[in-house]
């Protein structure tokens, strides 16, 4: 969102999914973006590896469950030879265990397949700029699984300092309260809560609620 002002670098992308219809949809969604160039598409993990070697992309969007070779093995293989590429896993809602495996394999983010177009674009831009991306529909159980997995994206050395109010709000966010509900509970205006939330997001380098929850769980702000 805040990158709109900065000039966009070209991002070269390949996609992999065994469903032609989904690839087609993805292709059309990406086509309208000026800075995203689709280099090619693959129908399974083997094809994806081949394509990645040939076209040397910046970002790969890949399904996790595919025939012949799944996205997890493909991700590991690709990162062995070209560690610079950012990979985003795609999955249908409840493959929670697979999502965690995918992140542990080295993916920089994940998306649910029924994500909005804007979210997909956002994910591509984020991982291209070295950030992590968690789909905004991340369930609490998934957040817990990610935060307790070996995958540790939050290796920042500088400790993040939170005010008491912020910690309070983070805990309420983890309890799945909306800004309005938090405002009512803490006797604040919704606007103030929004301000706090943005500040928290900034401190945590989180893109969305999912990022806040995962970071909070990891830092032990909420159990």
């Amino acid at each position: 969102m805040n990158r709109i002002a900065t000039p966009k670098a070209d991002i070269r992308v390949i996609i992999a999914d065994d469903h032609a219809i989904f690839r087609d949809g993805l292709k059309q969604a990406l086509a309208s973006e000026e800075n995203i160039f689709l280099l090619g598409e693959a129908a399974d993990g083997k094809e994806l590896i081949q394509l990645a070697i040939e076209s040397n992309p910046d970002v790969i969007l890949t399904d996790i469950r595919m025939p012949v070779m799944d996205g997890i093995s493909a991700t590991k293989k690709i990162l062995e030879t070209s560690p610079g590429v950012s990979i985003v896993g795609l999955s249908m809602f409840d493959d929670e265990a697979h999502i965690v495996d995918m992140l542990e394999a080295g993916a920089r983010g994940y998306l649910l397949k029924n994500a909005d177009k804007s979210e997909i674009i956002d994910a591509i831009n984020s991982v291209f700029h070295g950030e992590l991306y968690y789909c905004k529909h991340t369930s609490f159980t998934l957040a817990k699984m990610i935060s307790s997995s070996k995958f540790n994206p939050h290796k920042r050395k500088d400790k993040i300092e939170f005010t008491e109010r912020e910690i309070e709000i983070v805990q309420l966010i983890c309890e799945q309260l909306t800004n309005k509900e938090i405002a009512e509970k803490l006797y604040l205006s919704t606007r103030t809560v929004e301000g706090h939330r943005l500040k928290i997001q900034e401190k945590m380098h989180a893109k969305n609620t999912a990022g806040i929850v995962i970071c909070a769980l990891r830092l032990g702000l909420y159990n």
Binding site: I21, F22, D24, A29, R65, M92, I120
Partner: peptide, 17 residues
């Protein structure tokens, strides 16, 4: 889950574009 889901998601993306 594995077949119809991705198809519907694909259609949604097409409509969005």
């Amino acid at each position: 889950h594995d077949e119809v889901g991705p198809m519907l998601s694909g259609i949604k993306l097409m409509i969005s574009s």
